[in-house]
Design a protein around this nucleic acid. Structure first.
Lengths: 157, 157
DNA sequence: GAGGGTTTACTCGGATATATAATGTCCGAGTCCCTTCGG
DNA sequence: CCGAAGGGACTCGGACATTATATATCCGAGTAAACCCTC
């Protein structure tokens, strides 16, 4: 039960992208965060496939958010990187036992599975309630109001 | 972000153990669920290390719950198998950037990390609210009241 | 028949291989800006 | 001076190694019941 490290990278990148005025290439995002450029590219592709960011090629190309930062939740990013499959996958081992439940009882998911799904729903709800815009606001709170002005300036160079 | 399959096994085993009258060996638990004996043994060891079950060796040995099923939550089992480490591990990549936050701002965890921790707390709370006894009650609801009578009978053979 | 020592079968526990997924890297396809050449 | 065509450099995208984790397995250490032999 370990979340991919790429999730952290992707979320931070989305925060930066929410403050950018134009497309930001992978190279720039990677050196901003001090991480591997080639590996970050892989995760940005996943964000692209999920429709969170759009990519433009060419000399001044790069990545751009497809919608407002207020409309992108942290959960969206996580699902884009990790996939939409739930963490817990029921293998229905209750069927293997000497007393398998009746066919009609099997219509409902296994009790263990129900508990796991409920917990994952709680987890997702919590993550759905926070947007990239919220995180950006948190950065200005923690790190000063003019932080993103300097970031934009740095991105322009 | 995939949970170990052993969690499912361990939870189901705890439900069975909650209904057992004496120690149940790994062999019995494995064939009851139709799973690998040797691999299940590994997970039962983890439950033992976490203090959820106690093991008795010898001819009529096996595993036994250390406390009442009402006092064992699903979260307890998951933490025993998966470990207590959170799924999300912050690597503090905010430090690598050209504008690292001030030392005093770094006293607080990264904003991304705070969101992830909150979500994981919600997840854990949900799992903490369900006990092995609750799951056992669910089985009798789904599968008939005399289900565990037959299970006890089967375990005795 | 009773008691004690020994055997024995059964248990758990940790050390050891294999399969799968996460991590990290590389090179090719495509595109847009910039230069340059002609009118 | 203006316009268009060509070159070039930069971008993304998917295919390819490497490492960590999850999965699966095996054999040795320990224990308690059962047996047998002696008294």
């Amino acid at each position: 039960m370990k979340m991919s490290g790429g999730v952290e990278w992707a979320v931070h990148c989305c925060v930066v992208l929410s403050q950018a005025e134009g497309p930001v290439p992978t190279q720039r995002l990677a050196e901003y965060h001090g991480i591997s450029r080639t590996y970050l590219a892989k995760h940005l592709q996943q964000l692209s496939r999920a429709g969170l960011v759009t990519s433009t090629e060419g000399r001044v190309g790069g990545y751009l958010l497809t919608r407002a930062a207020e409309d992108i939740t942290v959960l969206d990013v996580i699902l884009a990187i990790e996939g939409t499959e739930p963490a817990f996958r029921c293998t229905e081992i209750r069927m293997n036992g000497p007393f398998p439940p009746s066919p009609q009882a099997c219509k409902r998911p296994c009790g263990v599975n129900r508990v796991m799904q409920a917990a994952e729903q709680a987890w997702r709800s919590s993550l759905r309630s926070v947007t990239i815009a919220d995180l950006a606001a948190g950065v200005t709170d923690d790190n000063g109001p003019q932080t993103f002005d300097r970031v934009r300036e740095w991105l322009a160079t």
